[in-house]
């Protein structure tokens, strides 16, 4: 009873005050209150990272490379893994369709050729660009030498070496890496803590990838103690790989070539060269034998006068 009465009284008193002092209520919108400073915030908030990455591989991929792909999948909570795709000339069209079908914006395509060479396509889907890399120096996470471990789906810190900003091609690749390998903030599978760091660095015109676990002594979740940053250590988690950019295309899986690595030699050519070298060795040997034979044939030994001396 008492409560009710009080309420009535207050409602009686308030109306005159409201007219004088209370500011007018902002308009309500679907997203919240429409307000001056709220608009300022929403401008920054407007951006939402909605990248989704399709990860697939070609048929006849070897186990080692498949494991690498699975490792990458486990590192990217915002990716969708799809079944293997036939790696033919028409793969671009198929893959573009697939990306569209799966609602993705980027694609990582691991293409294995001859059960030996691994190529990685990094693509943004509807209108490019796409980068083709040759992957080498692959180490998967299963290796027992890599002793670190971190949360699945925690957002990685991306560190780039400064030579990424020196040339347009590297800048483009950096932006692509940032969009593909960065986990979107507030993604439903992402965890709110940061306990691993990716390293992308250019050495010798190759991009080297490393993944480290961060271990810091700390008590609070939003602060590192004084000296905690100095005591911080990193433990490698894996995987490791090294990317050699071959070509950058304007479209996704095709289009005009924007860049071509002038130093690139395909592993096929290298193998062929080695093979030819080895084959040359054999042919040389055979030739030498033949030459010897013909030489012996042409210059027969003079009959030895003492040949039959000890026969009887």
């Amino acid at each position: 009873m008492a409560k009710k009465r009080k309420h009535v009284e207050s409602s009686k008193e308030e109306p005159p005050k409201k007219d004088d002092l209370a500011p007018e209520r902002p308009k309500r919108t679907l997203l919240g209150w429409k307000n001056g400073d709220a608009e300022m915030q929403s401008d920054a908030l407007l951006f939402r990272n909605k990248e989704k990455v399709l990860v697939t591989c070609s048929r006849r991929i070897t186990s080692r490379y498949r494991h690498l792909m699975l490792n990458v999948v486990s590192l990217l909570p915002h990716c969708k893994k799809d079944s293997k795709v036939e790696s033919r000339a028409s793969k671009g069209a198929t893959l573009n369709e697939l990306i569209d079908f799966r609602n993705c914006s980027c694609c990582l395509f691991f293409e294995c050729r001859k059960q030996k060479d691994l190529y990685l396509w990094m693509t943004r889907s509807p209108d490019g660009p796409s980068v083709k890399f040759l992957v080498n120096a692959v180490h998967t996470m299963e290796e027992l030498k890599l002793t670190g471990n971190h949360l699945k789906g925690s957002r990685p810190i991306l560190t780039f070496s400064s030579n990424f900003d020196k040339e347009p091609r590297w800048m483009l690749i950096k932006e692509m890496i940032m969009q593909i390998f960065g986990t979107p903030k507030g993604h439903r599978k992402a965890k709110p803590f940061h306990d691993h760091v990716f390293v992308f660095s250019i050495v010798d015109n190759h991009i080297w990838f490393r993944n480290y676990q961060i271990s810091v002594p700390h008590n609070e979740t939003d602060k590192v103690d004084r000296g905690g940053l100095d005591k911080m250590t990193l433990i490698e988690v894996g995987p490791r790989f090294c990317l050699n950019p071959i070509k950058i295309f304007g479209g996704s899986f095709g289009g005009p070539t924007l860049y071509e690595n002038p130093y690139y030699v395909s592993p096929n050519l290298i193998r062929a060269m080695e093979k030819r070298k080895r084959a040359g060795k054999y042919v040389r040997k055979v030739k030498a034998k033949q030459r010897r034979k013909t030489h012996e044939h042409e210059n027969p030994l003079e009959p030895d006068e003492f040949a039959d001396l000890w026969k009887n």
Binding site: N49, P156, T159, F160, S162, G182, P184, K185
Partner: peptide, 8 residues
């Protein structure tokens, strides 16, 4: 959103 760091 980006979480990127450059290192010289």
């Amino acid at each position: 959103h980006k979480l990127n760091v450059d290192y010289d």
